[in-house]
Amino acid sequence: MLNSIDARGLSCPQPVLLTKKAIDQQLTDLTILVDNETAKGNVLRFLQNAGYTVDIDMSEDTYQLQAKKS
């Protein structure tokens, strides 16, 4: 199952809480969009601690985190 979370414009902890909600639904493939360095770092750490591998792409002012359950 693939799920996208658009957390651009949101400040922490909101992006992490949205990501946690998706993980709690047992989603194994996630795409999370954030627009600031702090949110990127916090979501990345949260995903890694939850056992996901994460690839990060940046385009313009958006970070796209592609997460897969290991």
Score class of each variant (00 low, 15 high):
residue 1 M to Q: 14
residue 1 M to P: 12
residue 1 M to T: 14
residue 2 L to W: 15
residue 2 L to V: 13
residue 2 L to F: 15
residue 3 N to D: 04
residue 3 N to W: 14
residue 4 S to R: 11
residue 4 S to Q: 13
residue 5 I to L: 11
residue 5 I to K: 09
residue 5 I to Q: 09
residue 5 I to T: 07
residue 7 A to H: 04
residue 8 R to P: 07
residue 8 R to H: 10
residue 8 R to L: 10
residue 8 R to M: 09
residue 9 G to M: 14
residue 9 G to D: 11
residue 10 L to W: 05
residue 10 L to F: 14
residue 10 L to A: 08
residue 11 S to M: 11
residue 12 C to E: 11
residue 13 P to D: 14
residue 13 P to T: 14
residue 13 P to K: 14
residue 14 Q to F: 12
residue 14 Q to W: 09
residue 14 Q to P: 02
residue 15 P to W: 05
residue 15 P to M: 08
residue 16 V to W: 04
residue 16 V to S: 11
residue 17 L to D: 04
residue 17 L to I: 04
residue 17 L to R: 05
residue 18 L to Y: 13
residue 18 L to S: 05
residue 19 T to A: 12
residue 20 K to S: 10
residue 20 K to E: 09
residue 21 K to P: 03
residue 22 A to W: 12
residue 23 I to C: 13
residue 23 I to N: 11
residue 24 D to S: 13
residue 24 D to C: 06
residue 24 D to I: 06
residue 24 D to A: 12
residue 25 Q to N: 06
residue 25 Q to D: 04
residue 25 Q to A: 06
residue 25 Q to E: 07
residue 27 L to R: 10
residue 27 L to I: 10
residue 27 L to A: 02
residue 28 T to V: 09
residue 28 T to Q: 09
residue 30 L to A: 08
residue 30 L to I: 10
residue 31 T to P: 02
residue 31 T to A: 11
residue 31 T to S: 11
residue 32 I to C: 09
residue 32 I to G: 10
residue 32 I to W: 09
residue 33 L to C: 02
residue 33 L to S: 03
residue 34 V to M: 10
residue 34 V to F: 07
residue 35 D to W: 13
residue 35 D to N: 15
residue 35 D to E: 13
residue 36 N to L: 06
residue 36 N to E: 08
residue 36 N to S: 07
residue 37 E to T: 15
residue 37 E to F: 09
residue 38 T to I: 08
residue 38 T to A: 06
residue 38 T to F: 05
residue 39 A to C: 12
residue 39 A to M: 05
residue 39 A to Q: 03
residue 41 G to W: 00
residue 41 G to N: 06
residue 41 G to H: 02
residue 41 G to K: 05
residue 41 G to L: 03
residue 42 N to T: 00
residue 42 N to H: 04
residue 42 N to V: 02
residue 42 N to Y: 01
residue 43 V to P: 00
residue 43 V to Q: 00
residue 43 V to W: 00
residue 43 V to I: 00
residue 45 R to H: 04
residue 45 R to N: 12
residue 45 R to G: 03
residue 46 F to A: 06
residue 46 F to M: 06
residue 47 L to H: 02
residue 47 L to A: 02
residue 47 L to N: 01
residue 47 L to E: 02
residue 48 Q to L: 11
residue 48 Q to S: 08
residue 49 N to T: 02
residue 49 N to E: 04
residue 50 A to Q: 15
residue 51 G to V: 08
residue 52 Y to M: 08
residue 52 Y to H: 07
residue 52 Y to P: 05
residue 53 T to M: 10
residue 54 V to R: 15
residue 54 V to G: 15
residue 54 V to S: 15
residue 56 I to E: 15
residue 57 D to P: 02
residue 57 D to S: 14
residue 57 D to H: 15
residue 57 D to G: 12
residue 58 M to E: 08
residue 59 S to E: 11
residue 59 S to G: 07
residue 60 E to R: 11
residue 61 D to G: 10
residue 61 D to F: 05
residue 61 D to T: 10
residue 64 Q to A: 10
residue 65 L to Y: 02
residue 65 L to E: 03
residue 65 L to N: 02
residue 66 Q to Y: 09
residue 66 Q to F: 11
residue 66 Q to C: 01
residue 67 A to Y: 00
residue 67 A to F: 01
residue 68 K to Y: 01
residue 68 K to I: 01
residue 68 K to R: 06
residue 68 K to F: 01
residue 69 K to R: 10
residue 69 K to V: 01
residue 69 K to N: 02
residue 69 K to H: 05
residue 70 S to W: 02
